[in-house]
Simulated scan of single mutants.
Amino acid sequence: MDQMITWTPVGRVEDIPVQGARVVRTALGDLAVFRTVTDEIFALEDRCPHKGGPLSQGIVHGGRVTCPLHNWVIDLATGEAVAPDHGCAGHIPVRVRDGVVEIAFRHA
């Protein structure tokens, strides 16, 4: 069965602090939308795969975020923990159109 994607606007790029994040609350849980120093935008589930720490409160550096609880480093593009750690924060597709950040929701 094919899945449909709905692109949902969640704010403007400038609403997200540079090297920071903004939390988007959904029925399926909180998402963290990140902005890098080069204005790249990424979205992950706002939950570290290690102990569930809020990634939105972590430190963004390059294309990664460091969890504020136990310093796990998560790749923003994939949601994968950086070695030697293992695990994945759910990655959410994101795009920017005319300065508006949109996240993808999949449904049947």
Rank of each mutant, 00 (worst) to 15 (best):
M1D: 12
M4K: 15
I5Q: 14
I5L: 14
T6Q: 15
W7A: 06
G11I: 06
G11C: 06
R12P: 00
D15C: 06
I16V: 15
P17N: 11
A21P: 00
R22L: 14
V23F: 05
R25H: 15
T26E: 10
L28F: 12
L28Y: 12
D30V: 03
V33G: 05
V33L: 09
F34I: 04
F34C: 02
T38H: 09
T38M: 00
D39T: 02
D39N: 14
E40G: 00
E40V: 01
R47N: 05
L55T: 02
G58M: 00
I59M: 12
V60P: 01
G62Q: 03
P68F: 13
P68T: 07
L69T: 09
N71W: 15
W72T: 09
V73M: 00
I74G: 02
A77L: 07
G79K: 02
E80M: 09
V82Y: 12
V82G: 05
A83N: 06
P84S: 10
H86Q: 14
C88W: 04
C88R: 13
G90I: 13
H91L: 13
P93T: 12
R95H: 04
R97V: 15
R97I: 15
G99I: 06
G99E: 01
G99D: 02
V101W: 02
I103E: 06
F105H: 12
F105L: 12
F105M: 11
R106P: 00
